[in-house]
């Protein structure tokens, strides 16, 4: 067993395409929950419509990848409106329930028999990355980087594109939150009735945020489609939303860089615990466990780390403890 190799491999994947995609989706969730207080437990639903927007456009209709992304964004806007119109006027816990349900319903619809002509049902869609790779400025077969941080040209292209989007939307978040618009948004998080009593159309603001955060989630889904080249509905289970929540709380909700740092640390921990368990297992230190058990133990282990975080650092890694400690009532 080589602990250094495991560490290096974990560090490599902490900045890799998957971490970037989750960071992007978490930037959207940060707008929803971190700034506005919208309890969206169905961010994966936006990723799903985003991934299939690209997947169906590219894989079924053979359209250019950029058209696929445009379709993704349109789907996300429609989903946000459908979700928001009935629920945003209600108390925030209703949004929590309906988002988690909506995301699951979407998954079942996309994998259903009647949707097969478009989605290919449970088998999903394949060969989705050719268009994206055709505009790859790097050599796809070549490896780039230094030391352990080396990636194939294809992965590097996904990373550059996705981390750039993360940076772009983090900047957008910063600009919005340092404006009067952001002040209204933070006010809504504190007490929407107070904001309403000052003449602000709270519903319209929440809808704007739901759409914007959803669109960012859909972009992350689209990047997932071109990264993996193949998607199927069962990748978009509720646990993806929970990972995003873990990332957001780990990094610090309501902080511009929270999702970014959260994703890097989260995927480092995920890969490190996974690698460690596997290494221990192969050395024979875990005789009572077999291969498939590692996944469950690993999730429990990550869960434990997150619980410790909530207990000892509830504001997340870069959150503001002073802000956390103020009695919200």
């Amino acid at each position: 067993m080589d602990i250094l190799t495991i560490l290096a491999e974990s560090a490599r994947s902490a900045v890799g395409p998957v971490a970037a995609i989750y960071a992007l989706a978490a930037v959207g969730l940060n707008l929803h929950f971190g700034y506005t207080g919208l309890l969206n437990f169905g961010q994966v639903g936006f990723m799903l419509v985003g991934a299939y927007g690209v997947g169906i456009s590219v894989g079924v209709y053979g359209l250019p990848v950029l058209v696929g992304f445009a379709v993704s964004l349109a789907c996300a806007v429609v989903l946000a409106l459908l979700l928001g119109i009935p629920t945003l006027r209600l108390r925030s816990d209703y949004l929590a329930i309906s988002t988690i349900a909506t995301a699951e319903v979407l998954r079942y619809v996309y994998r259903a028999g009647f949707a097969e002509p478009l989605t290919n049902g449970v088998y999903g869609l394949q060969n989705l990355s050719a268009g994206f790779r055709s505009i790859n400025p790097f050599e796809s077969a070549e490896r780039y980087g230094f030391g352990v941080f080396n990636f194939s040209g294809n992965h590097l292209w996904v990373m550059v594109a996705t981390w750039s989007l993360v940076g772009l939307f983090a900047l957008l978040t910063w600009m919005l939150m340092h404006s009067p618009w952001g002040r209204v948004i933070k006010g809504i998080r504190e007490d929407e009735d107070a904001v309403r009593s000052l003449g602000k159309n709270v519903f319209a603001y929440k809808m704007q945020v739901l759409v914007l955060g959803g669109v960012i989630g859909a972009l992350a889904g689209g990047m997932m489609a071109v990264h993996q080249a193949a998607i199927n509905p069962d990748q978009f289970k509720p646990q993806v939303s929970f990972f995003l929540w873990a990332i957001l709380l780990l990094g610090g909700a309501g902080r511009v860089l929270g999702p970014l740092i959260g994703s890097v640390v989260f995927w480092f921990l995920m890969n490190f615990t996974d690698g460690l368990l596997r290494a221990l297992g192969s050395e024979g230190y875990l005789p009572f466990l077999s291969g498939p058990d590692f996944g469950a133990i690993q999730l429990a282990f990550v869960g434990l780390l997150l619980v410790l975080l909530i207990v000892f650092r509830p504001q997340g890694l870069i959150g503001d403890r002073k802000e956390m400690l103020i009695n919200v009532k």
Binding site: E190, S197, G199
Partner: peptide
């Protein structure tokens, strides 16, 4: 414009 019985200061602002 109205105020509220239970004061609604936006506490974390």
């Amino acid at each position: 414009v109205r105020t509220f019985q239970l004061t609604k200061a936006l506490t974390r602002m």
